[in-house]
Design a protein around this nucleic acid. Structure first.
Lengths: 213, 213
DNA sequence: GCCGGCCCTATACCTTGGTATATCAGGCCA
DNA sequence: TGGCCTGATATACCAAGGTATAGGGCCGGC
């Protein structure tokens, strides 16, 4: 996790899922013509079997797919924790379909025929969105990794410190001496790489939004 | 602002803007039949001239309006800082239209004929959304009011305290003695009603997201 | 059995934060 | 001109936080 940010610039990719080979190929060459890495798939299953690079990406999805609708597939991905931005294309779409897709977070919903530039713009928007999301996830997972390195006691102390309790109050609540609290507190600051109390508070709020440990 | 939360339960309202009187009336009676306060308007101008209660609301908007499209009106409202949730209805809509509306934050986009229950559900969703937004705004404006009551010096001190600076560092940066910083710091805690430093940090982050005063 | 990690505690010392009280100067307004 | 707010400062004292050093008990893995 930590060294991902130190890696070289990641090439974004675009996955195209459409059961019509001619559309697939024309979309692939369209996107490649503007310098994007585009990969064609005939079905959702094919797409899922592929191994994905650790890079920002975007999905171009036909609403009508063999076996399963594109909207269902979008829900499935979201449910599985795969948050790849989706650009829908369709030949036989209607308004309720597009509204459902957009509510589910689709980047764009294009009815054929659409302008090439509209698809290119949508794909770029999707890639940007994924890049931002991944950056946020990376930053958070660094913090979470540090948080996992805390001992149970340290986590309790961290929670109470972030809640604004004084050392002596924390000691009373945890049935400890004040000096023990200070020791744990120092460990927390060191392990979480917090340079000040405000720093720790912000980290704590990010890493433990509502629940705690 | 402060006593708004102490007021009685606010009755939510629904504004219906449609140039067709028969549709307007049928929507009003539909919404009134489920206990909602619904008000009809023939145009965007009529709507804007009306004085609004300080209560959560929702807008039901025909995409096709005299003079101005519903989508333009939605943009105009957003630009003017009016964030009333919008439910679109239309007789002659298309997919790009619905996608534009949803991207602009519309709650729902219903093509006629639609089921009564779909409109009712959408309106309730819109009202809930507005209620949540208003609650958040109220909470924030309380804090902002307190923040405005700070003197310029107190704001500077608050900013640096929230940044994790020590009193002596703040004193150096502001060319003050440490004791002066302590005095300002105490005023900040009192005026902002912060019970602890973590408390103040969270308040500071809410009231000054990126810029400062 | 020994080592290491975790947890707890203590003494001692220093730094930092917080509060009270008091003083002084400038600006603004009735 | 007198009152008030803002801003700055001082002394003095106490509370809280932070660090270093040193120890003991418990438990699981080697």
């Amino acid at each position: 996790m930590t060294d991902r940010s130190a890696m070289a610039v990641e090439t974004p990719f675009v996955a195209i899922i459409d059961d019509d080979p001619s559309i697939r190929d024309s979309l692939v060459s369209l996107l490649r013509s503007v310098g994007l890495t585009a990969l064609p798939f005939a079905s959702a299953q094919d797409f899922l079997q592929h191994r994905w690079p650790d890079a920002p990406g975007c999905l171009v999805l036909d609403v009508r797919l063999p076996g399963q609708s594109g909207l269902e597939f979008q829900r499935e991905l979201t449910g599985a924790g795969i948050h790849l931005p989706v650009v829908f294309i369709t030949g036989h779409g209607d308004i309720p379909m597009s509204v459902t897709a957009m509510k589910a977070g689709a980047v764009e919903f294009l009815a054929k025929p659409f302008r090439d530039q509209d698809l290119i713009d949508a794909v770029h928007t999707g890639i940007d969105r994924d890049r931002d999301r991944r950056r946020a996830v990376d930053a958070l997972s660094d913090l979470q990794e540090r948080f996992r390195s805390l001992t149970p006691r340290e986590r309790e102390v961290m929670r109470l410190v972030a809640a604004g309790q004084l050392n002596k109050q924390i000691a009373a609540e945890l049935q400890l001496s004040e000096i023990t609290v200070k020791v744990h507190r120092a460990s927390v600051m060191r392990k979480m790489q917090a340079r000040s109390l405000p720093d720790l508070v912000r980290i704590a709020d990010k890493v433990t939004p509502a629940g705690d440990a």
